[in-house]
Simulated scan of single mutants.
Amino acid sequence: MARVSQAHLDARRRQILDGAARCFARNGFHATSMQDVLREAGLSAGAVYRYFSSKEELIEAIADEAFDTIRTAFAEAARESPPPLPDAIIGRVVRQVYAGPGGTPEGGRPAFPRLILQVWAETLRNERLSATLDEGYATLRATWIEVVESYQRAGLVRADVPADDIARILIATVQGFIAQQALFGEVDVEVLQRGLRALMSMDIGDRSS
């Protein structure tokens, strides 16, 4: 029997995860059955269960991948010297993650916003997923803090505001944009970038409050 290549195994795993992500984004975790995933991926039960023994394993794998994509994208931006401004970093990262788990299903709208809302909700009842989210958030905060500190050293951001405060707001901006996409319909990422650029250009003069 011919040996199956690693590339084939990786492609099959990708096929399963993309199919599951589309199902979860469309119908939610709990309304999606493994049979739904099999149909969406176009694979037999044996082919899927070779990689994932349960729906819970699929959920955790998709969440891990989504968080890892976000962490990696921000870490790459943080390594640039000097780092890009927030609108450029956030625009780049959002575009990368929207091209990730689930791809672009029917209708041309990215699956990621609806999928990530499902993940956030699931963390409230799934301890393992919650631990993954906590770890990812801590790593993301640490990365943004490094970026903000670079801005402060360059005189681009006020040094009297804790870097962690600014990092939390930047993360919240991305979270809010994702929630808008999922709940109210697609908005071009350029809208987010233009809004950030406008806020960054505000001149508050000597006002301190």
Rank of each mutant, 00 (worst) to 15 (best):
Y137M: 08
A198M: 13
H8W: 02
R153G: 09
R194T: 08
A73C: 07
A31D: 07
G195W: 05
Q180V: 08
A167S: 06
A25Q: 03
A31W: 01
S53D: 08
V48I: 10
R95S: 08
R79L: 11
P162T: 11
E56S: 14
F29M: 12
L9A: 14
A142F: 00
I145S: 05
R39Q: 14
D188K: 03
L9Y: 01
G205W: 01
Q35S: 15
A77K: 07
V94W: 00
F24M: 07
A131N: 08
I62M: 06
S209V: 14
W120D: 13
T143L: 08
Q6P: 02
A159I: 10
R207P: 08
A198R: 09
E65G: 15
A179P: 04
L156Q: 15
A172D: 12
A41H: 03
M34F: 02
D188Y: 00
P86K: 05
H8G: 05
R109V: 14
Y49D: 03
V191G: 04
Q193F: 03
R39K: 12
D188Q: 05
L38D: 01
E146N: 13
R92N: 10
L183R: 08
I178N: 05
A142Q: 11
I90L: 15
R114A: 10
A172Q: 11
G195D: 02
G28T: 07
I169Y: 02
E135F: 07
R114P: 00
D188N: 14
V94E: 01
A20F: 01
G195A: 14
A121D: 13
G107Y: 00
I145C: 14
S33A: 09
F67T: 04
E122H: 09
A77F: 00
A78E: 05
R50K: 11
A77N: 09
F112L: 12
L129Q: 06
V187T: 10
H8T: 11
A182P: 06
M1Q: 11
G107H: 03
P82W: 00
D164S: 13
V94H: 00
H8L: 10
I116A: 11
I204N: 14
A99T: 04
L170K: 05
S44T: 11
E122R: 11
V119C: 07
Y151D: 09
A63R: 00
I116C: 12
L156I: 13
A179S: 10
F52Y: 12
S81D: 09
E60G: 13
S81M: 07
A172L: 09
V148E: 05
I204S: 15
R197L: 10
S81R: 13
R3W: 04
A66Q: 01
T69K: 01
G28R: 04
S54P: 07
E186D: 14
A99F: 02
L196I: 12
S130L: 13
D134I: 03
L85H: 04
I16G: 02
T104N: 01
M202V: 15
E127K: 05
F184N: 09
R158H: 10
I171R: 04
I204V: 15
G108F: 05
I62H: 02
A21T: 05
P105K: 00
